[in-house]
């Protein structure tokens, strides 16, 4: 009963099955630790049947949009998202790496036009395992470590 180790939330989002150690990164990417935000709970290294160990993030009063879910999928492809209403799970879905990543990631190529002009970045997922994407503009490919540092 891992979920009971942190307080249940009334309304909001629970991101479960985050690979252990990536919970803080999820919080950072989603900008969840704002001082005026709702209650935020992080459980790290929780026992998991599926992953061995996992992180869990609970956010009170915030429902994740699809775009935000996509952001998480890049660093936590195993994550599951629960939308909680009145202490119950109202919706549950797995995050998936989309075929195209739009507007979330910055191109690692400093000479890419997307870093100089007013454009929405766009990447095509070339491979999911290992994660590799290609920039729509400069056509360079980025691997996982570059992707993570440019989110």
């Amino acid at each position: 009963m891992a979920e009971l180790k942190v307080t249940a939330i009334k309304e909001g989002t629970v991101i479960d099955h985050i690979p252990a150690g990536k919970g803080l990164k999820v919080i950072e990417i989603l900008h969840l630790s704002r001082p005026n935000g709702g209650v935020l709970l992080l459980a790290s290294n929780v026992h998991s049947k599926k992953l061995g160990k996992k992180d869990i993030v609970k956010i009170e009063g915030k429902f994740l949009s699809e775009e935000e879910v996509n952001k998480i999928s890049l660093i936590a492809p195993t994550a599951t998202v629960n939308i909680v209403r009145d202490y119950g799970v109202a919706e549950k879905f797995n995050v998936e790496i989309p075929d195209e990543i739009v507007g979330i990631l910055r191109c690692a190529n400093p000479n890419c036009v997307s870093n100089h002009e007013y454009v929405t970045s766009k990447f095509y997922v070339v491979s999911r395992e290992p994660l590799k994407v290609r920039c729509h503009y400069c056509e360079r490919t980025m691997e996982e470590s570059e992707i993570l540092s440019n989110l």
Binding site: C112, V113, S114, H116, V119, Y137, C138, E139
Partner: peptide
């Protein structure tokens, strides 16, 4: 001189 300029 910038990569991706023609696409844009």
């Amino acid at each position: 001189p910038m990569e991706g300029a023609a696409r844009l």
